[in-house]
Design a protein around this nucleic acid. Sequence first.
DNA 1: GTATATGCAAAGTCTTTGCATCGTT
DNA 2: AACGATGCAAAGACTTTGCATATAC
Lengths: 148, 148
Amino acid sequence: MSEKLPPGYLILRVREAGYRVTAARMAVCQVLEESETHVNAEELCAEAQKILPAINLASVYRTLTILDELGLVHEVRIGTLPGRWAVASGDAELHLHCTECEAVYHHPLKDTLEPLLDHIKADHGFEVQRANLVLNGVCGNCMHNHLK
Amino acid sequence: MSEKLPPGYLILRVREAGYRVTAARMAVCQVLEESETHVNAEELCAEAQKILPAINLASVYRTLTILDELGLVHEVRIGTLPGRWAVASGDAELHLHCTECEAVYHHPLKDTLEPLLDHIKADHGFEVQRANLVLNGVCGNCMHNHLK
DNA sequence: GTATATGCAAAGTCTTTGCATCGTT
DNA sequence: AACGATGCAAAGACTTTGCATATAC
């Protein structure tokens, strides 16, 4: 997951892709790398402003667009809530969304998904590029609090 | 899937839930039952207007909200595109979203998902209520057209 | 020096909401 | 008759875009 990536990984990949390395992009990348959960654009912008006070939402969105194109971040959309982003892990993962506290937990799928993807390819001729898997439910904490 | 449901199923459930049966709700339900793919609110409204010319987007959204609460429809959100709805099938299903032509195909999961859900419950204490599973990729048609 | 990226503000989309009226129960 | 639902229009929330300026290469 994200914490295993070397610091500066994202901006490095941005540079490699031919994009310029700017203060705004560095700030966004740094915040993403240091985030332990999915963050929405506004939160991301607020954090980035601690590093680069002048940065604004437009630049955050523009940077996210690039990172997404490069497959470096992953966006989760839940209902009509604002999109939330996190550094994309190499393996597919399930996002567990608690409808009580709105937290998003991760569940790596690793090889679990491979057979399914092969099956889908064979069945539908559909070539999967990216997985956006959200399970909505109630997390352990909230469940526990309910019982009290 | 949706085509197996008896016509009038949705509005019946709406009535059972204690909501009034109105022309607007009937129209939305009928369109959903007759739709073979996921439709967005605007498309749904346009279709519903063929049945009830006066209906408008607000009523469509309001009806969708009710149907969603009752677990009768399922919303799929892809990137920043408008939400799309379809009648919820009993079984969990994967939504295969073609990033070329924007079509959404379905892939029933049936029992495939059960072991995973049990695993998640055991691992994270997370109780899954609803699955929103989208795989992005390229469908057979588009793949074929690319090769030409 | 030149092409790109930024910040700001304005526009765009999709969705929700207030309110007077209408329709269902 | 009473309460809930509708249609309209306006507001809201999130995201994108135009443009002049600033910056990376």
